[in-house]
Simulated scan of single mutants.
Amino acid sequence: MIEAAMLSARQMFTPPFRAVLLKSLGLTALALVVGWIGLQALADHLITLENQTLTVVARVVAGLGTAFGMLFLVVPVTALVAGLFLDDVAEVVEREHYPNDPPGVATPLARGLWLSIRFGLLVLGLNLAMLVLLLLPGVNVAAWLVVNAYLLSREYFSLAAMRFRSEGEATALRRRHRLRVFSGGLVVAALALVPFANLLTPLFATSFFVHLHKRVAARDAKRLGTEESRPRLGP
């Protein structure tokens, strides 16, 4: 686990990752800025009090609240944007660290986009639902870590595994090693708590779970006395 995290961290700013990183960060920042401007404009339009001073104060408070609320959008937005590049990242990791293994098969574009949108909306919905926990210090952070660790581990492990096996086989593999996979999700969720570093979460998570999948699959194959699964063919 630690070795996989260190390998992923070292690879973040290498030349093969840099182009994907810049594109992902640029699109994520643009999406967040546009979202904040849109929400702020909506708040300014809706907040109109009889007292001008109160109106200004209310709009400022709403602006600060909107900026704080955008923190909850970082994970789903980065996941949605980076979903366009995850197969590129996985391919680089597989080529550099596992050159003797059969290469994975990229998820078809339409299906990959749908999986990214579905995951982004799921994470967004659950994070918005957890806003009610903001008034419970300590509990809110713990709940956020657990929920996002589960979601992130399930999604990114599945994406790495589905390059080599069907969705059903990937799910079965994840469930057989659920504690190890969830522990990996905690590592990624902890990174997502760090301001600015959380923008790197999808790329780090992809690399990390490619390594983790390789180790889990090898352990599974050894236990079952079979060869490592070959890449699946087709969607």
Rank of each mutant, 00 (worst) to 15 (best):
L128Q: 11
G138P: 00
T171C: 00
R223T: 12
W144K: 04
R176Y: 02
T206D: 01
S116I: 05
I37T: 08
L115G: 00
I2H: 12
L193V: 00
R230V: 12
P231T: 14
A192C: 08
V81G: 04
V141F: 13
Q11V: 02
V77R: 05
Q40L: 14
A110P: 00
L191T: 02
A190W: 02
V92P: 01
A58D: 08
S229I: 05
L115S: 06
L133C: 06
G225P: 05
L121V: 13
R232N: 10
V181F: 10
V132T: 12
P202Q: 09
H97T: 00
S207L: 05
S207R: 11
G234W: 07
F119W: 06
G65Q: 13
H213C: 01
L109P: 00
A205E: 02
L71R: 05
F157L: 11
P103W: 14
E167M: 11
G112I: 06
L200M: 12
P202A: 08
L109F: 15
K23S: 12
A129D: 04
L86P: 00
A82L: 01
P195Q: 03
L126P: 01
A43C: 02
L133E: 07
R165E: 15
Q40F: 12
A82Y: 14
A170Q: 07
R232I: 15
I37S: 07
E91N: 11
E228G: 10
F164H: 15
V89L: 13
S24C: 08
T48R: 15
L32H: 07
F204Y: 13
V187E: 06
V34M: 10
N51G: 03
E94A: 14
F13I: 02
M1H: 08
P15F: 06
A189Y: 03
L212A: 12
F209D: 00
G138H: 08
L113A: 14
R163C: 03
K214W: 13
D44N: 14
F204R: 04
L115N: 09
R176N: 09
L203I: 15
S166P: 00
L200Y: 12
L122M: 11
V105L: 08
V210T: 14
N198C: 09
D44H: 13
E3A: 15
V181L: 13
L124P: 03
L151Y: 05
L203F: 09
K222V: 00
L73S: 06
G120K: 10
N148H: 04
G138W: 08
N148T: 05
V74A: 04
R176M: 07
H211K: 10
V89W: 01
R118A: 11
R219A: 15
G69P: 03
P103K: 13
P16V: 06
V141R: 09
P99N: 09
L173W: 00
L128T: 09
E155D: 11
F209Q: 03
L212Q: 11
R59C: 01
P202R: 12
L7A: 14
G112V: 10
T107R: 11
N100S: 14
V61H: 07
V123R: 03
